[in-house]
Write a protein that binds this DNA or RNA. Structure first.
Length: 290
DNA sequence: CGGGACTAATCC
DNA sequence: GGATTAGTCCCG
């Protein structure tokens, strides 16, 4: 059910893709998915491939045309542009160096460089079981193994590749020393049952989640640091973790959530302002006609 | 329901 | 491989 983006492109179909902006390799054994819309900005989105059709952008909304296209396979499952096709702002990494292509295109629509992003899907327990099983055999997957796992799970090979990438990194993170704070730390206020993995995806046992409560003293320090710079690199994260008695991961999560919250609130505010303007116009119109 | 944690997907 | 985003989960 939750694997809508699984089946979309057979390796035989990928040969059709030659002559396009980012054609995948012609080698059938290693068929990398097409380069996602990572550096495609608005100007190139005037006609973006969309499943078995083509999406075009007009006056801020995306329209679906009916020409066949196989470039952005996940979109085939999201035929309804209103509900599923979204334009997301381009990433703004702390030390991101914009590519030439991005700089070229970003001026077309002001500074609003936006890209399409695949709607996030969540894998079923059954799918994760198979993925974990394969991961236990080998940390890397490719070739026929990946093809088979794709068939078994109903996930695309791209999704499987990404899952393995993320899984390897998750495993590495688990190996990192945990730097638990000492009990006599001035900021220390730690419950006993924290840092249990929330969901043991290996055996799919749902381990109860324990919430970490960040103390006011810690919050003050975090806010203070966030005001200076919304991004914090690993080195400083470790120092701060030690200084205020949190884990590095807790600080990382806090900064991530904080940025997310800020952005969300900001967007909500913008929307509010826009509707405010509309309301103003409406009231003015009704006033003028009276 | 706010917010800390997890994770699929993206970008380098 | 690592950092990050954004959608989601779920505890208090």
């Amino acid at each position: 059910m939750s694997s809508p983006d699984g089946r979309y492109m057979s390796s035989s179909q990928s040969s059709i893709l030659s002559g396009k902006p980012t054609p995948p390799s012609a080698v059938p054994t290693a068929t990398p998915p097409p380069t996602p819309l990572n550096s495609i900005a608005y100007s190139t989105l005037q006609q973006v491939p969309f499943g078995n059709g083509t999406a075009s952008r007009q006056n801020g909304s995306v329209h679906i045309l009916q020409q066949p296209n196989l470039y952005y396979p996940w979109l085939i499952n999201y035929q309804n542009p209103q509900s599923n096709l979204q334009l997301y702002p381009q990433y703004n990494y702390p030390f991101h160096q914009p590519q030439a292509s991005q700089q070229l295109t970003s001026s077309h629509f002001g500074n609003q460089t936006e890209v399409l992003r695949k709607p996030r899907s969540s894998f079923t327990d059954a799918q994760v079981v198979l993925l974990e099983e394969q991961f236990r055999q080998s940390k890397f997957i490719g070739g026929s193994d990946r093809e088979k796992l794709s068939k078994d799970t109903g996930l695309s090979e791209q999704q499987i590749k990404v899952w393995f990438q993320n899984k390897r990194i998750r495993m590495e993170k688990l190996k990192e020393p945990k730097l638990y704070s000492q009990n006599n730390h001035p900021f220390h206020q730690r419950q006993t049952c924290q840092h249990q993995p929330i969901r043991q995806s290996v055996n799919l046992e749902k381990v109860p989640r324990y919430r970490v409560s960040i103390t006011n003293a810690q919050l003050t320090k975090l806010e203070e640091r966030f005001k200076k710079n919304q991004y914090i690199l690993k080195r400083e994260r470790l120092d701060l973790a030690k200084a205020i008695g949190l884990l590095e991961s807790e600080i990382r999560n806090w900064f991530q959530n904080k940025r997310q919250k800020l952005k969300k609130r900001g967007i909500q505010k913008e929307d509010q302002e826009e509707t405010d303007v509309e309301i103003d116009i409406c009231t003015f119109d009704s006033f003028a006609t009276n």
